[in-house]
Structures are given as C-alpha cells and as structure tokens.
Amino acid sequence: MFMDFNKWIMAQIFRGNRWAKGKTPWTPLPRPVPELRLALISSGGVYREGQAPFDAGNLLGDWSFRVIPNDTPTSALRVAHDHYNHKDGADKDINVVFPLDRLRELEARGAIGQLSPVHIGLMGYILQPEKLIEETAPQIIQLLKETAVEAALMVPA
C-alpha cells in the first residue's frame, strides 16, 4: 500500500507537463523595464511573519497564496516548504528565492519603473495543479490587475 502511494505521488509530480500542451501565451511588454510596474512571485513557500504558514507537511501540497505588501521588511519574511533546502539559503537571506532587497535597489537606481504595492508567495509543492490553475491563479491575476502590475518576476524554490 505504501509503495503504491509513493508511486502515485511521483506520478502526480511528473504529470505537470500535461498542462503545457497548449500554445505558449504572449503579452508584449507595454513599456521598457525602467518604466514598468513589476511584481515578485515566488513559489519558495515565502510568507510574512504573522500570516499563516503554508501547510508544508501536507502530502497533497498547499495551493493557497500569501499577499506580501511591498513595504514588508525582508527580515519579516519566513519560509514554509518541506521540499527544498531553505535552512542553508532562504532562512539566512530570503533574497535567494525572493530578491526583494535587490529589486528595491534596482528601483531606487531607476532600472525598474516601480515595484508593485503587493507581491505573492506560493508554496511550490502542489500535487493538485487543477486547484492552482482554477482557484489560485485567477485570484492572483485579478489582484495584480487591480494594482496595475504590468510584469511579474516569477522565482522557483
């Protein structure tokens, strides 16, 4: 029984490509990056202190998301994700999966037009991608459209 469950889990992980059979969508950049409003989206399990952590221990994953305000100090960011080494990386310096400090510096230097008022944290271990596609993604897209975001930098764990 246990072996069968493991096999099932692996099959869930490797069925991701079935979502990629359609044509790659394309939105031209509306203006150069130094004039653009940019959001940061990480699937590294990033959340803000005080928010509920992701359900990292759930074998089926956690497809919820966290809204991270742009004025959040990076020292207040945490990671809940059981499927990558954040102990030696993101726990010490969140910028390795959520480079908000670097993007702020680029914004201050004029290399980015403006950072979005909100950024997004996800936990990349999701064995039910239907939930991500049908429930979570439309909510994130709506939120980013409301804040007039024009591009997103998406970072994996």
């Binding site: 310096d93 999966v97 980015i112």
Partner: peptide, 28 residues
C-alpha cells in the same frame, strides 16, 4: 544554480544583483 538558490548564495550581494539584472533584461 542549486534548487532553492535561483539568485545565488545568502548575502552574495553582487551575485544576486547580477541575476536580478539579467532576469529583467530578458523581459525586453
């Protein structure tokens, strides 16, 4: 780079900034 270190090592300011700049350049 290793899984979980897309922008480099902790506190590696120059490394992180270079990757961030290159990621943004790819947008254009």
């Amino acid at each position: 780079f290793p899984f979980g270190f897309a922008f480099g090592e902790p506190f590696a300011y120059d490394q992180q900034l270079i990757i961030a700049e290159d990621a943004l350049a790819a947008l254009e």
